[in-house]
Design a protein around this nucleic acid. Structure first.
Lengths: 262, 262
DNA sequence: CCAACTCACTGGCTTGAGCCAGTTCTGGCT
DNA sequence: AGCCAGAACTGGCTCAAGCCAGTGAGTTGG
């Protein structure tokens, strides 16, 4: 045997995808450029339309192109529009009177909008309950917001608070007043002193695909944020879901110089 | 017209996918469980085999199942094995004599391995050049390593250093000695004082799919790390590529309490 | 002038057939 | 008992044909 499994030739659909991928990589198909139609590709490569369609699907799954019904397939524009990170929680934004999200969006010349989707008493998801230190039916208040820039959905934000603490406060209302929920949590004696962000990525659920209006082949970034107060107690957990192709996260941190093991 | 676009019925392949997804969600198909074969599904739903196959593909793209040639389709086990974050750079791991990676892997009872894939002089990628403050042909040293746990690939790590600074140092060698590259960079006068991680997620390139042995429908998490020394100067940039389904990132950070705008 | 219609395009999805390539079971032969 | 070949499964991929549903431009009628 020469090599294992005889590399031989790749199947036609993958060959077509390879050639198109190459054309995108070397710039002969620039961002926004339209690819040949399925029928045209099929003819060009003497393959069935199915096969050409499969090739385009492969590229879409790899996040290289977007396919639009009735219009065609287009090389995806790479644009990383939003940058979030530990800065998102910084107090220094308060001088502007804008939330970090509104600041970011207006700086880009777009119109921010927040939809309050629901404020409900709920059973906490397992990961949230663990972090917030609660369990049992109805032990959390769940505030779900959807954020938009120029009517384009940007992120899904689910905030969880301890029901016992907040059920008779302005945190039950859609409008939470100056400095938002963190302002009200300070009224309750919780000043965010440290934060923890747990970051994962995955493919979106069908619901997320719909609410974020995601094209195929775009993962989501999920951030599970926990806020700790001046006593080191967790008092708020928020789950952020962003589309990965439009969002970057930036974390700046000091490096611990002490050599003792924890 | 009642509603827009007549919600009507979803296409058969999506209906099949929906029912299977439901079965996975409610636990009647647990992790590791085997799904019916394409031919069985086709018969059950009175559809063509193609249609059943399409349904399974949809679930694979959504990261819910893995399809294995000759074996069948299986509900994916969710396992988040590795947790990295700002802790990855902490000096306190030095007491153990192990790198954070080896520590993490051995704690899981697995055998860590690092392959040094290449140590080459290169033209810096644009994003790296900007952050490292260099440009031009041959201005960086690129060290590429692949990390494994029990021969399973875990991460691809590309470190970039300024060629001018390191070309006659042990940093050219595969083995860098005590405390690794950060130890040698300290010899050169750079102590990591702050770090910045820029986190993004995307679908893998075909090369990454191969080296990380990724099943379909698994995104990758890319971390572009920049190290700053005691003078606030960047001296090292590293790109980490992880498979998203096995990796979580954790960032702990103090929250800046000063209200002045930057 | 503008609205409405028509038609030629685009992709979405299905059918049913077929061949190929991994995997696993099974039964027969040593 | 142990091995080994083949049968019976699995998915991978293709073909050719067809119908449906968005899109957009060009035409037609008010």
């Amino acid at each position: 045997m020469t090599a294992s499994t005889t590399p031989g030739r790749r199947p036609p659909s993958q060959q077509i995808a390879d050639e198109l991928r190459q054309a995108i990589a070397d710039g002969s198909l620039g961002p926004g450029a339209r690819l040949p139609s399925e029928r045209a590709l099929a003819q060009e490569y003497k393959a069935a339309r199915n096969t050409a369609a499969r090739a385009l699907q492969l590229l879409e799954e790899q996040g290289l192109i977007t396919i639009e019904h009735g219009k065609g397939a287009f090389v995806r524009e790479r644009q990383r529009l939003f940058r979030f990170g530990n800065d998102r929680y910084s107090f220094r934004h308060r001088a502007t009177g804008l939330t970090p999200f509104r600041l970011e969006v207006t700086q880009q010349g777009k119109e921010p909008r927040v939809d309050v989707v629901g404020i409900t008493r709920e059973d906490p998801p397992e990961d949230v309950g663990e972090r917030l230190g609660v369990a049992g039916p109805g032990s959390v208040l769940h505030r779900e917001n959807h954020y938009f820039a120029d009517d384009e959905p940007v992120q899904i934000v689910s905030t969880f608070l301890r029901w016992d603490e907040v059920h008779d406060t302005p945190l039950m209302q859609p409008k939470t007043g100056k400095n938002g929920i963190y302002g009200r949590l300070e009224d309750l004696g919780h000043v965010m002193t440290t934060g923890r962000d747990e970051v994962t990525a995955r493919m979106p659920t069908p619901e997320e695909t719909e609410t974020l209006r995601l094209p195929a082949g775009v993962p989501v970034v999920e951030v599970l944020h926990t806020s700790f107060d001046q006593n080191g107690e967790p008092f708020e957990v928020t789950r952020y879901v962003h589309r990965a192709d439009r969002t970057g996260l930036v974390y700046d941190f000091p490096v611990d110089q002490t050599e003792e093991d924890a």
